[in-house]
């Protein structure tokens, strides 16, 4: 599982604060008019989700709610990090029609192809 700490080399500026992310596990499937992407982000609710499109990239960020448990950890496997994953966006996807929801830690993103890119029949004059 994944640590991606990037963003800094691109702009060339000094990192002010290094944030460590985990890469969520993702499935991508073809859907009716585009794709559907599902990312596993346990511990994230709708307030922690941030989806942006920049420079043709789809950036998915999920911030975990702090775990409320009392006492000391006897055994720990969860990483309790924020999640981040970046995908190059297919140019045929309509960035204005991306929709998303999160349910029990699964972020579902619907990516639809732009209307004018769908195959269409041209009638002769």
């Amino acid at each position: 599982m994944n640590i991606v700490s990037q963003e800094h080399q691109k702009s060339g500026q000094q990192p002010t604060e290094q944030v460590t992310y985990a890469a969520p596990y993702v499935d991508i499937e073809p859907a009716e008019s585009g794709y559907v992407l599902r990312a596993e982000m346990p511990g994230v609710n709708r307030n922690g989700i941030q989806i942006t499109v920049e420079d043709g990239n789809l950036v998915l960020v999920g911030q975990q709610q702090p775990l409320s448990v009392s006492g000391e950890a006897l055994h720990r496997e969860t990483r309790q990090l924020s999640y981040r994953r970046v995908y190059e966006l297919d140019p045929s996807i309509d960035a204005d029609r991306i929709s998303a929801r999160i349910d029990q830690g699964i972020l579902t993103v619907n990516l639809q192809k732009a209307e004018n890119l769908k195959p269409r029949r041209i009638t002769l004059e």
Partner: peptide, 22 residues
């Protein structure tokens, strides 16, 4: 699934990451 175990004087808390279940 990842699993944690916590303890305080009164109780144990077991936490498991199980995204996408009913």
């Amino acid at each position: 699934p990842a699993l944690d175990v916590y303890q305080d004087k009164d109780q144990f808390t077991v936490v498991a990451e199980l995204p996408g279940l009913k």
